[in-house]
Each structure stands twice: as structure tokens, then as C-alpha cells.
Amino acid sequence: MAAIQASGLTKRFGNLYAVDGVDLIVEEGEVFGFLGPNGAGKSTTINILLDFVRPTSGSVSVFGLDAQSETTAIRERLGVLPEGYDLYERLTGREHVELALDLKDADEDPDALVDRVGLTPSDARRKAGEYSHGMGQRLALAMALAGDPDLLILAEPTSGLDPNGARELREIVREHAQQSKTVFFSSHILEQVEAVCDRVAILYQGRVVAQDTIDGLRKELGSGERITLTVNRVPEGIAEKLGTLQGVASVGTEPGFVYVSCTDPTVKIDVIDDVRNAGAKIVDINTSKASLEELFAAYTGQGEEVVV
């Protein structure tokens, strides 16, 4: 059974389709990245999943339970780091975790959860009103982890976290996945998703434009590799010449460097030959796989607006 299954999910606000016929399957035990620029419909999809918002049409189920009619049964198996939440400023960190544990009817040790998200015991004794945004985010994560949920839904979880916090978050996600539990992770920050997710869906203007493993997306797009040549000088007209080669997707140059993205890895040798034949001396060669960011830009056609 799928952890999350959405079919034909549509939400219209007035004339605007925030979510427009989304089909999505998240299998049990996988870490699933839900990607898209701001305003793509990620929040609305998650809001429907959590029954904060009711769909105009279509449906979504969690572990086979209907998100609109079986909310309590779903939330008993769910840990959520919601977006746009606020904490109870007069309750301490520990009391927040206790609240989550009590409402989930779980009997874990609140101090262990506090520790797991990197808050100190003295942090836990302070009122949440005194917390920084990053500490609040850690506390919200501890509440999400309460009751060892089968499905963890993290909406923009890295917002407010410093790089250290982001790394710890990835650790927690991995640990959770190792117990064959499911993580659904929404983000517009691509490197976070790339580092932990088994599969991703890319949402753009309310529609799922791609749903695959990251490698699968790379293959499908054919943007296999990127070569950076460090040269003593950039030969005249080299970009145009390389652009005519079969298997070269794009070429860029700047003083001292030639960048080539290729869909066919075997074309690399031809590229190097052509550059040398044009009279340049190659000082260094660097190849890298296409980043998710480039894939993302290719799918949404507006990579430049994406925050990395």
C-alpha cells in the first residue's frame, strides 16, 4: 500500500488553480522529495493532505485512509512539521513535546526527543516565546518525531536552520528511513532534497511535471554530464564549433574556461580534441553530473528564480 496516493487532486481558489490535477504516489519506506518553486502548489497539496484545506476535486489517501474523512486515524500515524505554524509562547520546549506525546497517546521520553533534535535540557526548560526561529524549528521537528510516526511530513524543514542544523536534519531523516518509515519532504532548496531523497516529484504551476528518482530524471532529460575545461586561452569561435557536435547540449565560455553540458558521455573526447585542435592548451579537466538544480531549471523553465 502506498504511504501517500493522490489522484486528480485539484484545488481552485477563485479563478486560480493552486493545484491542478496532481497524481502522486509515495511508497512506504521511501524518502520522497516534493520540489517546486514558491507558489507551485506544494503547500496547498500538503494542506489538503493534512485536511487543512478541502480539495475542489480529486482525492488523496494516506496508508489507504481518506484524508478528508479519516483524519484522526491518519494523524495517529503521522508526524508533521507544518508550514506557517506558531508555538505556544508561554509553554516550555519540553511542554510542547509533552503536548505532542499526550495527544498522540505515546509514552516516549520527552527529554530524549529534545536531545535528538539538538536542543539542550536548559533550552527545553525555557518558554518557546524566547526561542530563535531555528530553535523553534528544531522544537517543531521534535514534536513531529513524537510517537515514532510511520510517515513524517516535513514542510520546508530547513527554513531557519543553519548549515549545521540542516545537516542534523538530514541525519534524522536518514535514521527515520532506515527503520523503513516514510518521509515526505517538501522544499524549494534543491541540495537538501538531492542529499536525502530516493525519489522526487517536481511541481510547477500546480502540476506534477516530473516524478522519478534523481538518476531517472537525469537520464530522461539526457543532461548527463558537465565538463569544465581550464584552458590557457579560449579559441575564437570554439563555442559555435562545439555546439555542432552530436551529444553536446550547451556550451559556455569565460576567460580561461570552457563549459560543456553533454547528453552523451562519449562526446567528451571529441570536445577535448576540438579545443586542442583550435590551438588551446588544456590545463585541467573537470567533469560532474548535472545537478538537480539544472534538472529543475530544465523542467520548470525558470531555474534562475530558484533559491539555492
Binding site: 495517529e76 508550514e83 495527544l103
Partner: peptide, 14 residues
């Protein structure tokens, strides 16, 4: 208005 309701409604209570 503050968003605290999201915390509560993400947990089992209806």
C-alpha cells in the same frame, strides 16, 4: 491567525 492551530491539527485531535 497565528498558525498555532496548525500545530494542534497536525496532531490527532479533530
Amino acid at each position: 491567525q497565528s498558525g498555532r492551530i496548525r500545530v494542534l491539527l497536525s496532531l490527532p485531535p479533530s
